[in-house]
């Protein structure tokens, strides 16, 4: 693997994760600078290369760093290569700040790429990320977003399925409370025949939290046998939370299977009452329902350890606790 960073956990003066997942390697980007490597970060997997360990990229701000950061990350998965990436955004700075990120992902013929993206900052943080993605023939891309915590989180995804049998599976869970804003904008283009795409995005919105979901699937005139599915479901926990959802299908081919569904709902009173009659207190019953709602997205994480970790972060978040990894005292947020 060609890499422009060196993993140097021995230097305790540098930032590192205290509770790394098994079979992962860590890379740290501190205040926008790649620790021990070149900025901007880029990763290139050669033809046929298989990344055995997951690469966890942790972007973090120092305590006193509140400058606007504009960063870029580039990923290139060569023909037939396989790789898994975890991207985490954290901060030690409690100040108001803004981060603008651009991520490019190129998945070559028959390559397989997985991205798990965890966005966990705080109410003063504004984080805008644009993803530009191209997927080639027979290649597969999976992305699971967990927008756990942030004042403003915007994810804009431009994804092209460029050659036959390209496949992508996108999923996301976003959680808001106080006056947080989550904004997902997805443009997914089926440019050629016989490609498959799936999208499942779910949000749990509390207090005066607001979520926008705009998802457009465009099927080009020749892109026959396209299969494209999109779902966006929102759960409003409070009377003041708001969800705006705009699913859009633009289909210019005639032999396709496409669907989209969007819902905005609230917790089910009958389920709550049923649980309470069995002695489950109301708060716990509400939490169980929210976990059940989130489950479908978290299930997309195939690595068990990562899934468990994410599940516990989501549960802490839903309980209104501070979301940090258990056993860690670094308190990234």
């Amino acid at each position: 693997m060609k890499q422009n960073y060196i993993y140097t956990p021995a230097f305790t003066s540098e930032f590192r994760c205290k509770v790394p997942l098994k079979e992962t390697r860590q890379l740290f980007i501190v205040n926008g600078k790649v620790q021990g490597g070149q900025t901007p970060f880029s990763l290139r997997l050669e033809e046929g290369e298989i990344m055995k360990e997951m690469l966890q990229i942790i972007s973090v701000r120092h305590k006193s760093y509140k400058e606007h950061l504009s960063t870029q990350q580039d990923f290139h998965f060569g023909k037939g290569s396989v790789g898994r990436i975890i991207q985490c955004s954290h901060t030690f700075s409690p100040d108001r700040f803004r981060t603008t990120e651009k991520v490019t992902i190129t998945v070559d013929k028959e390559a397989s790429a997985e991205f798990y993206i965890m966005q966990n900052e705080h109410n003063n943080a504004e984080h805008n990320t644009t993803y530009e993605i191209n997927v080639a023939a027979g290649a597969f891309l999976k992305m699971v977003f967990l927008s756990l915590h942030g004042g403003v989180i915007r994810n804009e995804i431009l994804l092209n399925l460029n050659e036959r049998h390209a496949q992508c599976d996108l999923a996301g869970l976003y959680l808001t409370d106080s006056k947080q804003l989550m904004d997902y904008k997805i443009s997914l283009n089926h440019l050629v025949p016989e490609c498959t795409s799936g999208q499942l995005f779910k949000g749990i919105l509390d207090d005066e939290g607001v979520a926008h979901f705009y998802g457009r699937i465009k099927v080009a005139p020749d892109a026959q046998k396209t299969e494209a599915f999109q779902a966006n479901h929102n759960l409003l926990i409070s009377d003041k939370a708001k969800a705006y959802t705009q699913p859009q299908l633009e289909i210019y081919a005639d032999d396709v299977k496409c669907s989209h569904g969007a819902t905005i709902g609230r917790l089910n009173d009958d389920e709550l009452f049923y649980m309470r009659t069995r002695g489950i207190p109301e708060a716990e019953a509400r939490l169980l329902q929210q976990k059940a709602f989130a489950h479908e997205v978290l299930e997309k994480i195939s690595n068990t350890e990562l899934r468990e970790r994410m599940l516990s972060l989501v549960e802490r978040r839903l309980r209104g606790e501070f979301s940090h990894c258990s056993t860690c005292i670094r308190n990234c947020c």
Partner: peptide, 19 residues
């Protein structure tokens, strides 16, 4: 009886018992 999708029977009754 009410259906609760996503909450498994075991998790449901375990939570109830422990409460």
């Amino acid at each position: 009886p009410i259906e609760i999708p996503g909450v498994t029977n075991i998790n449901f009754i375990k939570t109830a018992i422990n409460e």
